[in-house]
Design a protein around this nucleic acid. Structure first.
Lengths: 230, 230
DNA sequence: AACGCCGAACTTGTATACAAAATAATTGAC
DNA sequence: GTCAATTATTTTGTATACAAGTTCGGCGTT
């Protein structure tokens, strides 16, 4: 029979559902029907309901008692709000990092910047994206505050698809790289406020640059393609 | 029979479990046994498992696949880290609020400060606690960033038991009130950085003041009493 | 014809039965 | 007697059966 479609279990379901939402296969407001999704994934309702709860905690779906689970895509305003918070969390990471960063982490950050330069040179946005990811994750660690690192990573992850859109904008990659350089320079000089400001700006720019993408976003409220991986 | 103990369902279970953890009836590292808790609450395993997931999302329990759910109380360091982040979130609220706050909200903030003064005068820590809560919630709203408000409220809620401990420290109430006044004054003058700094300090103080409580905390890692309500 | 009430169909919420995995215990070998 | 391996028990994960609530359609009334 054609049951080969599925067979994933547990948090496999969660991840798969998350992708369906993020890629836009499931539109804003869509009701997540337990039985149809269950047979689609080849599992029972139980793992699905657990996935719903996890996704609700992430803010991707809204759970209404006795009514069901509904896809919750962030409105444009909400995205701007999230970037506003993200900017501040990263700024805090930077401020703390100037005091707490270790030599190896600083060296690793250096490497990512060099790798980013190569990516920009090759106009390889995929690679730039990967290295940018690394840069930020390292920075979260460098803050020396595990809770902060977790929260930052959580929000970062939630904004991932939208950040990816940004890189498509002309010149954004090079600009981003330059901002990375400024952050790194501030860290090396130990200027905490400069580092914080550079990071706040680095992230906030993405939020404000969103106006440029607004039009396309409006008609297809989800990132259309190429963000389904990792 | 003696089944009268329970009979609550669904998120009632979630809330009750949360209280058990917060009050310290369930100690750090305790395994949450599904069957025994099920009969304790007079329900089946299903609602319990859902509650586990919700609590895991809040960070109160750790979910290990095929092993079970374990109570996760924040270590002292982690608490300090959480206050560090909370301070920054509130600072951001304050900075934004100077630009965005509405007249009614400003008036409401005024009222809470007055109510706090009365509470301090009466040495009524319960009332002070309630009004302090109101002050901060209003502030989160005043930031004009709903996402930020939600996140701040979430963390605020998570730190609730520990903040409550603080008020027991001699003189803390009066000091806290004074800090509230400074925040409000900065907001009224529209000085965003002053407001941010005042709030950052107001919260950070709580984190650092924690050293004073460390000894007692060490031997009973949970807030011992009087924080189970609301 | 429109509104409200009542009932059927469907959907979610909960309980239980079953399967798989992990832990504990027992047996056997060295 | 100790250690390892295999079996037994316990516990989590999943599926299904059942209960309760919600939505939708029909019927009757005004």
């Amino acid at each position: 029979m054609n049951t080969r479609r599925a067979d994933r279990r547990a948090d496999g379901v969660r991840h798969e559902l998350e992708q369906l939402i993020l890629t836009g296969d499931l539109a804003d407001g869509d009701r997540l029907d337990e039985v149809s999704l269950a047979e689609r994934f080849g599992c029972s309702r139980t793992p699905l309901r657990e996935a719903f709860q996890a996704l609700a905690a992430s803010g991707l779906v809204q759970l209404i008692p006795h009514r069901g689970a509904f896809v919750r895509h962030p409105a444009f305003e909400e995205l701007v709000e999230m970037f506003e918070v993200m900017a501040e969390l990263e700024a805090l990471c930077g401020r703390l990092a100037t005091r707490r960063i270790t030599r190896p982490l600083l060296a690793a950050l250096h490497e990512t910047v060099i790798a980013c330069e190569a990516a920009v040179h090759d106009a390889d946005s995929d690679r730039y994206y990967a290295e940018n990811e690394r840069f930020h994750m390292l920075l979260y660690q460098a803050g020396g505050n595990r809770f902060l690192a977790d929260e930052a990573a959580r929000l970062h992850r939630r904004l991932k698809p939208f950040r990816r859109m940004q890189l498509q904008v002309r010149g954004r990659m090079a600009q981003s790289l330059d901002e990375h350089r400024q952050v790194l320079a501030a860290l090396e000089r130990g200027e905490s406020e400069a580092a914080a400001d550079a990071l706040r700006n680095h992230v906030a720019v993405q939020g404000s640059k969103f106006n440029d993408l607004m039009a396309s976003y409006r008609r297809s409220p989800l990132v259309p393609a190429a963000m389904g991986r990792s």
